[in-house]
């Protein structure tokens, strides 16, 4: 597959993925753009792979998880944590939209690697094996990252229901 064709077919999806793991569309744009520029330089090799998309996705993920973006990631997390604190108390439990936004805020404050695993599972529908490839870790690590993320989200969900129950 040629580079141009790859970009035409996958760019939008890649941006969606990057936005979901970073929770920051501008950071996502920067990362995707930089990664594609790098990928273009060695496309002969990447294009010949069985799964170029998986490889590029791995580049994007690494870029985000690498130290370079650590500061930006923290700033966003702080902002979202603020949001997460406020959302439960103001949300209408009957409102599906509010519920979804509350969940978004909770996902945004997960540790980055856990969030990446979560997005790969629930947005990209990856198997444990594929997630392990993208994150560059063992399958057992993928499972533990996912279960920890789900545990955190569930605990919040319970706390939220309880809070709302008291208020309503």
């Amino acid at each position: 597959m040629g580079f141009d064709q790859f970009v035409a077919e996958r760019l939008d999806r890649l941006l969606g993925y990057a936005t979901a793991i970073t929770c920051d569309k501008h950071l996502a744009q920067d990362i995707v753009q930089n990664v594609l520029m790098r990928a273009q330089g060695k496309w002969e090799r990447i294009g010949a792979m069985d799964a170029p998309y998986l490889y590029v996705k791995r580049m994007v993920t690494n870029d985000y998880l690498s130290w370079r973006h650590r500061k930006a990631a923290r700033e966003i997390a702080v902002e979202r944590a603020e949001l997460a604190r406020h959302v439960p108390s103001t949300a209408d439990p009957a409102d599906a939209h509010a519920e979804r936004e509350a969940m978004r805020a909770r996902i945004a404050v997960l540790p980055r690697k856990q969030r990446a695993a979560l997005v790969l599972r629930f947005y990209e529908d990856c198997t444990d094996v594929e997630i392990a490839q993208v994150l560059g870790c063992a399958e057992s690590t993928v499972r533990s990252q996912l279960s920890r993320a789900l545990q955190t989200l569930r605990a919040h969900e319970l706390a939220r229901s309880a809070t709302l129950g008291v208020h309503s």
Binding site: L11, D12, L15, G16, Y17, A18, T19, A20, C23, K25, H26, A28, Q29, E99, R100, E101, M103, R104, I107, A108, L118, V119, F122, Y123, L153
Partner: peptide
Amino acid sequence: LIRQAIAAEAEERVDS
């Protein structure tokens, strides 16, 4: 709910 939330986040992406 997680699926929807992540999809909503991804929806925010910039125009390709």
